[in-house]
């Protein structure tokens, strides 16, 4: 029996779990994947870049994760929390990549903050500064902050993803932010003194 294509308008109204289920329907799999990609691609990509600290590696891992996710959907894998499942897939691949690759850190690789003459301390520049500071955090703190602030996960979800307790997840986010604040203190002081 021929299956009918589902309109994009309807795709928008489907929950993540319904969309993931549609991946088994070949006629609509691509559209369902496109919708899931639109919902989560941005956040997962941001996670890869900030956790791995290397854009090329992040692109590789992101692509591998999204395709793995698509294949899982096509194979009819049962998933309760699609966002969490995708995050776990991305995270595992990132951890594998980090384990397999000795990443050498050099400040020259990063666009460390240098105020430009045209628009000093704009939000974009501050963002770059924060991104560089993130690199200096311990892995567990950095990941917790990224999951919270970049991916918008609740403490409960962070605990599930990182396989720790909710209290620990909360503590890691808090300490990560505290360390970031300590690292950025001189810049904040300079920036905020005149606001």
């Amino acid at each position: 029996m021929k299956k009918h294509s589902i309109t994009t308008e309807r795709m928008n109204t489907y929950s993540d779990e319904e969309l993931f289920g549609i991946l088994t329907d070949a006629a609509n799999a691509e559209a369902a994947f496109a919708e899931l990609y639109r919902r989560y691609g941005h956040r997962m990509y941001a996670y890869c870049v900030r956790v791995l600290g290397d854009v090329r590696q992040a692109e590789d891992v992101f692509q591998e994760a999204m395709l793995k996710f698509f294949r899982s959907g096509q194979e009819g894998t049962q998933v309760q929390n699609v966002g969490g499942y995708l995050m776990q897939t991305v995270r595992n691949l990132c951890l594998n990549r980090k384990r397999d690759t000795k990443i050498t850190f050099s400040f020259e690789d990063y666009d460390v903050h240098v105020p430009s003459s045209s628009a000093a301390y704009e939000a974009g520049e501050l963002a770059k500064l924060v991104a560089s500071a993130l690199e200096l955090l311990d892995d567990e703190y950095r990941e917790a902050v990224i999951l919270r602030e970049y991916d918008g996960f609740s403490y409960q979800d962070i605990a599930a993803i990182t396989q720790t307790s909710e209290v620990n997840a909360r503590t890691r986010v808090f300490r990560g932010k505290q360390q970031l604040r300590a690292i950025l203190q001189p810049y904040f002081k300079d920036l905020l003194k005149h606001q």
Partner: peptide
């Protein structure tokens, strides 16, 4: 103020990190 600045920076960084069209 520090916390708000930090949050603003996070938001700006998230906005800047979009999968490149070629990758998509």
């Amino acid at each position: 103020r520090h916390a708000i600045t930090l949050q603003t920076a996070f938001k700006a960084d998230v906005r800047a990190l979009t999968p490149p069209p070629a990758l998509t």
